[in-house]
Nucleic acid binder design. Structure first.
Lengths: 198, 198, 198, 198
DNA sequence: AATGAATGAGCATTCATTCAT
DNA sequence: CATGAATGAATGCTCATTCAT
């Protein structure tokens, strides 16, 4: 079954491939249009400018995670299980589209001080969800008290670090292995650290 | 006492400020020259091209860490203490120059597939040092066995995450606080995780 | 009747004027664009780079001569008549566009060791045509044997020399006179030299 | 015996090599200085600017020819013998320094409309000497009447053409052969043309 | 005279964006 | 909506020339 993509979706998916390969700054609108088999002008019927394409890419990914986050928040699981569920979703999504993972991991550079909000939403918002989760966990006596602001930043960074390790791994087998074991390894690290005496 | 900087050092320090503010891609050689109070051409007496300035910035920072890493490796401390010493150096350096921290944290994007080796040395090499430390620690029975490849990537990411949190924190007090407590918090997380029952 | 030139042709003709006036190296793409009444960027929609404009100028002129050369080769005239026909075409073309003549005569300097093939095709290829003609003529007993390699080079140089004399002559009347009599004078020189006793 | 060159001569000879290899426009003063083993600044103690180096190169070559021309003029030889003597000198000089030949042949492009007089002296003056010789020859009944202006331009061009053929010939044996036979071949061509019935 | 670091005007080229068709 | 030729501001880099030492 061939799914006919609407134009905006076609552009998003093409841009992901192109930007993953060349990076945002080395990706031209001409290249994206060419790869998508459309005219440059068409891009501008769906996006105000090049930046907004990246914005949209992040927005879509962010929304997936947000939806999952809200779902998890509504459940009554222990916090760490919620976190694990989110990590599983995250790495599954990346496994499903390595290119999008490369973008999430590399395009830290907010282009200018512009209207690209979903990138900063991602880079700053996601840690805040984690912080929120951690605070709840502390309240509920699930975890020890700690500087949740820092720990949340560390956890987010750790996730990004493992994702980066995976998406830039050239050996596809190793890549898959990392992506599969990442959630458990991370939860393990977060939970009990690496000490012998746990 | 005014320290007369040699040109290359002047350019490096100016570029750090400019690139931290605008990002590598939005920093022009003209802007760097202007800020440094020199002519554009002078930059090219010391750097082959713009990319090489960023390369040099990373190289200098990398060397500081490498020197510290080698020193620590030669000592007989427990691995986790070595790691803590390195984190302390890292965050102290960042505290000393926030701008350089912003660059280390944001410029993940290797410009092109070019000769910028010290950026990839930093992004790939540093995790390998950590991996090396972890492997030694496992051999010496200091920590539990784990997938050091993944855990090293996670740790490096965590450090970058906390650094990012700090360097983009606008409140200088909070920033300092994060930078000061970062090493201990991270070691704490790495060591015992966040579980209650540690 | 205003002939609407397509862009590539417009650029070629404008570049001929500009390069004839300033020389290739002192002609800027900005100047060419300005004179053509288009934007610089437009040039690059039709030419890969500045060099390729010159390349194209030579290619067009070369093709005219080549076409004529092939036509002449197919006829059964004596070689010297073929040569004269070619000279007549050549000088008529120059008379028709002095600027192009200036370029053909002055831009001996292949810009770099680059892809500019039609310049060397012109500077090396045309003498080879002449050599070919001479060899045929010798075979057919039309002319005496001689070192055709050298004589061809000399003849090509002589043509270039007379063309140079004409195109840089400021007096338009004299210029026209030279261009008109050039073919016959050259053929005369080539045929019988300047001796009294011919 | 090592001849210690004075600075100006050193620069001239180095510039000949560099400009022959890269062409005037692609030869940098830095490169010339480096090859000469001196500082860039030193060049400017002997030449007002880069252009003046080329000017001087032509001036030196021009003077050699001029001296020979004057000498020949003072003799009572038939004009064609004078011409042959001059051609022999010319090609001998080129054989002696191929690089200088390449420059004489390629740098037709007067850099700007500047003070470089010896290039135009060479390109316009030498044909005038020839014209002068031809006029004398006609007066003395040595040669037939002809448009000496055109024939002189043609002869000069022929000489340049053969020189070009020689100096860009890669096979050194062929090169030498051309340079040796050039004067006679040219005189032969000029005298009797290439007709059978001479 | 010799040096060579510093200069900065100058230029080729790119590429996001527009808009007439 | 789709197109893609045209645009031109922006920018990295070069290199002839200067001048303090």
């Amino acid at each position: 079954m061939v799914v006919k993509l609407n134009r905006k979706e076609l552009i998003r998916q093409t841009a992901i491939q192109v930007m993953a390969e060349y990076g945002y700054h080395n990706s031209t609108t001409d290249k994206i249009a060419e790869e998508a088999g459309i005219a440059v002008g068409t891009i501008y019927n769906y996006f105000r400018n090049k930046e907004q394409i990246l914005e949209y890419i992040f927005a879509v990914e962010l929304e997936k995670r947000q939806k999952a986050f809200v779902e998890q928040q509504q459940s009554s699981k222990p916090v760490l299980e919620k976190l694990q569920a989110l990590l599983e979703l995250h790495f599954a999504e990346i496994a499903n589209n390595i290119a999008v993972g490369q973008i999430l991991v590399r395009e830290q550079q907010l282009p200018g001080k512009s209207e690209v909000t979903s990138i900063s939403d991602f880079l700053q918002g996601v840690p805040q969800w984690i912080e929120e989760l951690l605070n709840t966990a502390i309240e509920q006596g699930e975890i020890c008290t700690c500087d949740t602001r820092i720990i949340a930043a560390a956890m987010f960074g750790a996730v990004q670090g493992v994702a980066a390790k995976a998406v830039f791994e050239e050996d596809k087998n190793i890549q898959n292995q990392i992506l599969q074991s990442a959630p458990k390894e991370l939860i393990h690290l977060f939970t009990g650290g690496i000490s012998l005496d746990r």
